[in-house]
Structure formats: structure tokens, C-alpha cells
Amino acid sequence: MTQLALVIDLNVCVGCHACVTSCKEWNTSGVAGFLSDENPYDKDPTGTFFNRVQTYEVGEFPCTETVHFPKSCLHCEDPPCVPVCPTGASYKRKEDGIVLVDYDKCIGCKYCAWACPYGAREIDEKQQVMKKCTLCVDRIYDQAIPEAQRKPACVVACPTSARLFGDIHDADSEVSRAIRERGGYALMPEWGTEPANHYLPRRKGTVAVDADQVNRIDSPLNVDGRIPGTLAALIAEAQAAADPASAPAGGGR
């Protein structure tokens, strides 16, 4: 059984919001109908988005990490939002595990949003139906779109390719490998929702240099006839040799 999902690599996400607006752009003219905005040019503009990028700070100065954190529906394998829906508008597709809302059935009771611990659902204030990430279901299967682009809009957009897309039930998929090899984890595991989307943690690149690597026989200072020490000493040597020399100071070895 297929379970499509996003895997988000926090190690490279720079918080650029490309995934946020490309999602809005794709979906506002997509099967979801439009995604409305309230007060678009006035106080407290607010609108429906399927994906948000948040920022967290970890630690205290100077040991601070800034973590950019994109969040959309996690397409839980055991989605608490689905059974609570009184109309059946919320459902999980068997064939690919995508959790969707049927906007024609939804009565806008918001109960599913209450049942989602992740705050991944947003009601469209104009249409008064519940909306959420569709994993771009109207894009990923659309034969009219070139195959390479047949991925969620946010994935195609992401400049750091921090967003991987694929089947997490296929052990050989890029996403499964990433989860396995780079410590992919789920959000709020305590609720047993088994989110399909996973996150890859930060990793630290390091350069290890120890003191005895510094000095070497082919040091350029040897060419210039200097011994590593203090810069003042290097210069002083030159100074000492300066007068009345017209000959090089120590050179030519």
C-alpha cells in the first residue's frame, strides 16, 4: 500500500517561504477552488494557506540555533481528523494515503480541525469549508504536466530541495532512505497519529584541525627563510637585516 508524504529537511531549510506562496498559487486556481484572503490590503490581513513556515530559536546566546520549520498536513496514517468528521467530507485515500477534504460535502463544523493536534487544517473564511494540504493531488497525477514537474508545487519550488516527496511505504524510495539514513522523525509521536510526513534533523558539518597539522616542512615560511613564531619576529628578522643590506635577508635557500 502506498503512502505518499513529504519529508522536510530542517538541515537545509532556510525559511524562505517559497513553499508557502507556491502552494497558495497552485491551489488557489486548483481543484480546491480559490483560497480566499480577508483584509488583503488592510488591518490584520489573513487568508487560507495550506502550508506555513515558522521560526523557532533553540538555546541561548551565543549557542543559538535558528530553526525554520515548514508545516502542512502530515497525512497521518491514523488520522484523528477523519473519523470525527460527521459528513465523511474528510477522508483518507486508500490508494495513496492522501488525506483529503471533499469541499462539496463539508459543512464547516470545524470538528476535524479540533481533532488535528498539528493545526494543519484551516477553514476558508469565505467558502466556509475546511481546507488543507492536498499533497497537490491535482498535480502529481496530471498527465498534462511534464513528468519531472509532477510533484507537489512546494517541492518543485523549494530552492534548497529541503522538501522530498515520495512513498514512505516503499523502502527503496528516496523518502524512505532519507528517513532511515538521516534520522527522520515524526511530530508529536505521543498521540499515535503516525504522521506520514517526516522531518530530518539538523546535522553539523565540522572541520577537525589539530595543532600538529599546522607546521609542516614545506611551510612557505621556510621558502621565505622565516620560522613560524610571532609575526613581530618575522618582521624583526627583516628589520635587523635591513641596514645596510642591499642583500636579501636570509633569502635564496
Binding site: 477552488g33 471533499d102 493531488v137 502529481i140
Partner: peptide, 19 residues
């Protein structure tokens, strides 16, 4: 712009009027 008809529940993702 009334909500465009939606066929998601029929799992025919590409075949909706909007697109």
C-alpha cells in the same frame, strides 16, 4: 467565484472542470 465543482472524492484528480 462560487466554489468550483470538485471531484476529489471520486479520485479523479486531473479531471475536474477547473483545470
Amino acid at each position: 467565484a462560487a466554489p468550483p465543482p470538485l471531484d476529489l472524492q471520486h479520485d479523479r484528480p486531473a479531471e475536474h472542470e477547473g483545470q
